[in-house]
Design a protein around this nucleic acid. Sequence first.
DNA 1: GTGAAAGCGCTAACAC
DNA 2: GTGTTAGCGCTTTCAC
Lengths: 353, 353
Amino acid sequence: MDAYRSGENKVITIYDIAKEAGVSASTVSRVLTNNAHVRNEKKQRVLELIEKYDFKPNAMARGLSDTRSKVIGIITADIRNPFYADVFVACEVAAQKAGYTVMLCNALGERMQEEKLLEKLQEQRVDVVIQMGGRVDDLVSDASYVEKVNKLMNNIPMVVTGKLDGTQCYQVRIDAMKCIDLLMEHLIELGHREIALIGGRMNVLSTFEKFQRYKQNLSRYKIAFKEALTVEDGGYDYETGYARMNKMLDQGIRPTAVIAINDFAAVGIVRSIQEHGLGIPQDISVVSYDNTYVSELVSPKLTTIDYNYESFGEQLIETAIASIEGGENPKLQLIPPTLIVRGSSGKVPEIIG
Amino acid sequence: MDAYRSGENKVITIYDIAKEAGVSASTVSRVLTNNAHVRNEKKQRVLELIEKYDFKPNAMARGLSDTRSKVIGIITADIRNPFYADVFVACEVAAQKAGYTVMLCNALGERMQEEKLLEKLQEQRVDVVIQMGGRVDDLVSDASYVEKVNKLMNNIPMVVTGKLDGTQCYQVRIDAMKCIDLLMEHLIELGHREIALIGGRMNVLSTFEKFQRYKQNLSRYKIAFKEALTVEDGGYDYETGYARMNKMLDQGIRPTAVIAINDFAAVGIVRSIQEHGLGIPQDISVVSYDNTYVSELVSPKLTTIDYNYESFGEQLIETAIASIEGGENPKLQLIPPTLIVRGSSGKVPEIIG
DNA sequence: GTGAAAGCGCTAACAC
DNA sequence: GTGTTAGCGCTTTCAC
């Protein structure tokens, strides 16, 4: 018994349908695509047979003949990260509405993988690729990746959630500066002036932007910048938040509020603060970015930044489709964030130890 | 300016390569597939041109001609759930090793979606589909879905992480009974006899199995079954854990250990216990299933069940590929779980209130 | 409105 | 070894 016995049940083609319906294949194709008028009587006969045989047109054949696969390739840095999972799902929904299929490729957090995935998507002849995270987050774009993308873009347009200097990629990106503005305004309104920044790497565009804007905001509010309140380099995970906060508190540095680079880091920070016998938000407020479900899993729940994932996904897909179908779109679009206030942030403590 | 201007940069085909290399298209094809010997000199010339033009063979054309797309379709109940994300990633890695591409379709937690996704994958002519969660978790398989799958399986084999009665699907599923055995043995060794079960729905196969086995184990250890310690029906989320545990404690029911249906429910349970002024594990031990990163996010970290996602994914993919290529595989394979002991479980308290 | 025929880019069977 | 040829299943002119 070799292979899957497809012989048993021959897969139906439009020719089979055509033959049995007593029409030509073109006619069947016409009812399939709805691109031309077919006499109603024939149309019905064809439709019935399609139903009868549970016929599904071969997407590959279709893609081959009209050179449009109707699939959107999506590269994520790591789908296990709920941020990407949320955006991806939003994209999938939006794509489906528009009659497109998405194909997810996951870089597993390894930047080396990204080039390979690009090739894979190219082989699949996706109509457009969307890249979320990874190399497109770089403050300084990797030259060899840029070259790769430029080659790809001879045939396939690309939209990214960050940037890629030296390419013509469409950018649909979260307004990082606005994010930190919201967080800082919120904290300053609550009376905080000792605001720490924890997590993230400065070679990541959004992190860099947040850091710059943080300093600008401080001076706008006439607050002195303190090196000790910002941790130069870290990751985006629980461990980073936990370790950095521990270090800060152990050194006797005592911010009244902490901005975590994302929800994961925030959880680590929360843990560290609580283990030091301090209360949130009575002693220290903690806020973060992303509004993933993680932000509702900790106690207290996190004040965080939301992006409206649904419309983020829609905009990504809309831009992607416009780029294939010739619509006009600005090269750069910014997603407006909103503040979600929960229990982790509160008024600055009256007396500071 | 209409559509993406692919005209600017004609996409290269094997004919272009063949022409410039002064060979036939078949020769180019041969070096591409490595299926036959080509004189080294020609081979080199072709390879150079492929490099020069960054040529990538069209996967659709390839799939059309050999009627094997080399893509594995994967349906998940919800990729935002880290359990599925972990399994999916493991599958992707395994598939890539085997020269296959995966295509993820997400049912968004809506069972109605699953049939549509099946159709979509059928159109894409995936070689095999793997379904994780959703309808294949049902204790009693949905008849109309079974019918759909049986039609599909005339042409495309299918492997599921649960079961689908009345179909010939391959099953690669977690050994649910062994899971609860591990958990209960662990707890009983620690001296627990008042063990609660929280979360999950009885119409879900794995949950049902766990419940049955729970009762069997109790009687094996000569522990009386108490209705009050098991909550008939719930979900798989934080809220379920939180609400059910609250209810139990508020009613004065005081287990010394709780088995949560998954890490999310466990977090809710932990929260509830802590809010009741009780300690974990001093007063109550909490254990759960899945070993997602959530289990390391709570404090104390959770004792939980792990499945070795990597090998789970490999087995899924291996079975999938065997089913297309004609390998022999048992219809049902069980994934052995392992126990991960962390801080949330400890010895039963000496004196029980 | 509808059929015939060409072609999308590749693989594989067949000759030489 | 290598070129020629015939499809794979669909869409799309082009006639009629």
